[in-house]
Design a protein around this nucleic acid. Structure first.
Lengths: 251, 251
DNA sequence: CCAGCTAGG
DNA sequence: CCCTAGCTG
């Protein structure tokens, strides 16, 4: 809620790293919990290390804050184009690997902020925003591939009430619902929030709307893994969320 | 939840009563609370009186039970065609006035019964069903007029999360949101349930999807009133819900 | 048969 | 910063 929806039109290029397969598009999405003030320098450093290690073509970050931006810019601005979704408080940020992706255009779409009537812990607001995302994805021209990734805070029973068109797929479902990367928020494993109660949820999701026009390169989900599972030296994890690193085959 | 969605294709005819204007289509929708065992004979008699008084062309009843059906059939079967949405427990029933409406075809569509995860008092299930209704209405051929009426149990904040196409309108909204017939379930005014807490909600709703094809008669919401506001001699109301009596102009 | 709050896992 | 059950107006 109150976050922004970010869009970027991208064209692929080449290069290779340890995780990267030249013919795949790679994406990392991560709620990096910039609002958590604990051990920020170490966690920002951890985040940069993960990004350099995985070297994703596209990075979608949520709950970004200015101190993180400054730190990351120093380490990554050579390799990545930064697209900030805001300036104050917390906001989203997209990074595009310069050697692999050409930014043609970008647009920030802030969500209308409406709490409805505090509909049960913002469930209504989440679903309204999710509906808007699904609608926007399905409306895209049929020669466009559309990717959505981020922390949705959606519960499965909320997603179940929304009619998702055939053209759009959930990456995790498409890959056979691997148990290993089901839960992206997990207070059993992640102790950043030191909660008395334990729970795990699939808050972070990636959606793909394939291009459907003949002759346009077709993308398919290829792999998916959670990122940030290791404790940093400071004793905390990079975020209270795990990141999702995924790859897509092209044609 | 667990109810049925009913459909009827209808063609108009003529006749006239006190409430009826010959050129209007009239409709009564009412959750008659057949599960409430108190004073059933009197309440069933009251229901029949209302129907005979208003003489609506189409009657949509929810929470109907077999004892009611038997009673009503004796009084109304001469004038109305009965379409039962089920046989056991409680179910919907449609009545069509024989002199005004010709039944061409009918189909009962039971909702898939899925509780999701008991999402806050079945909110998720309500919205899933509401989505299905809206989708089905919008998918109808453009020379069809589609009417939906019934007890939805929907809260305004639930409806607000659903994208309703331009082609579909809420009768009550279309008529300028008259305060007089806003709340169809009202424990301030209706004492059938003798609740300690007081509340009023717009549970019962009527939706219209106009025919859009040229040359096809166009229906427009014309009037709306609540029904069943009078206490019966037994001291109870006909139902814990008010009914909605409404008329539509044609062309 | 509502909605807001609280306690406890 | 989770979810559920139970209480209360």
């Amino acid at each position: 809620q109150g976050q922004s929806a970010d869009e970027a039109s991208a064209v692929r290029r080449k290069e290779k790293t340890e995780f990267e397969e030249d013919d795949k598009l790679s994406l990392l999405t991560w709620n990096i919990d910039g609002l958590d003030g604990e051990e920020q320098p170490q966690r920002a450093r951890g985040l940069c290390s993960y990004i350099l290690e995985y070297s994703p073509d596209v990075v979608l970050l949520q709950e970004m804050v200015q101190p993180y931006i400054r730190f990351m810019h120093k380490r990554l601005a050579t390799n990545y184009t930064f697209i900030k979704g805001g300036e104050i408080g917390y906001f989203t940020t997209i990074l595009l690997k310069k050697t692999r992706v050409t930014l043609l255009d970008s647009k920030i779409l802030p969500f209308r902020y409406s709490q409805l009537t505090k509909f049960y812990y913002n469930s209504g607001e989440r679903m309204r925003q999710f509906n808007a995302v699904i609608k926007r994805m399905s409306m895209a021209p049929d020669d466009f591939t559309v990717l959505f990734g981020g922390d949705t805070n959606l519960r499965d029973y909320e997603v179940a009430t929304v009619e998702i068109p055939e053209s759009i797929c959930d990456l995790w479902e498409q890959l056979g619902e691997p148990e290993k990367c089901r839960y992206t928020w997990d207070t059993w494993a992640n102790t950043n929030k030191e909660m008395r109660f334990k729970n795990r949820l699939r808050f972070d999701r990636v959606y793909l709307r394939r291009a459907v026009k003949d002759g346009v390169p077709r993308m398919e989900p290829h792999s998916m893994a959670l990122v940030g599972l290791e404790k940093l030296k400071c004793g905390r994890y990079t975020s209270d969320h795990w990141g999702i690193y995924c790859t897509f085959s092209v044609d």
